[in-house]
């Protein structure tokens, strides 16, 4: 599997000075088009205000799998969302009924009922030692 290094954005929160490395193995990509949108959140900004983001061209996948590394992710309790942005427009598209049209997944492979999972379902502790998580898109 090809390893791709990405630089993540610096933490938006001025309170956290501790940062760690987060490695994500994304699996189950349907086809190579578009890009992956990855966002890391803390509890306060869950699915609204990311504390780290990354994008990756989905074409580099091998057998539906792709690895990303986010550096300088603020330590603490975090949750991750992954969107396969199939048409490359930079956002998760919804249909007219508000139903997502592109595959999404979350850390812990958490699934919500009629919407995204709660933060506590997707969250895990990111320590200075870093973390490696597998997320299945399909």
């Amino acid at each position: 599997m090809k390893k791709v290094l990405l630089i993540s954005l610096l933490a938006l929160s001025a309170l956290s000075a501790q940062a760690a490395e987060l490695e994500l193995d994304v699996q189950g990509l349907g086809h190579g088009g578009g890009q992956l949108l990855v966002a890391v959140f803390s509890a306060e900004g869950w699915l609204r205000k990311p504390i780290a983001v990354a994008r990756q061209d989905a074409a580099i996948q091998q057998s539906g799998a792709l690895r990303l590394v986010l550096k300088d992710v603020p330590e603490g309790l975090v949750g991750v969302s992954v969107v396969h942005d199939l048409n490359g427009n930079g956002r998760l598209d919804m249909n007219v009924m508000g139903i997502p049209q592109e595959p999404t997944a979350f850390s812990n492979n958490a699934v919500g009922q009629f919407g995204p999972p709660r933060f506590d379902q997707a969250s895990f502790e990111l320590t200075s030692a870093g973390a490696r998580h597998t997320i299945k898109l399909n």
Binding site: N108, N109, A110, V111, P117, R118, D120, Q121, A122, S123, F124
Partner: peptide, 8 residues
Amino acid sequence: AGLGTLLG
């Protein structure tokens, strides 16, 4: 019951 992190 807080077992969400163990889903899977």
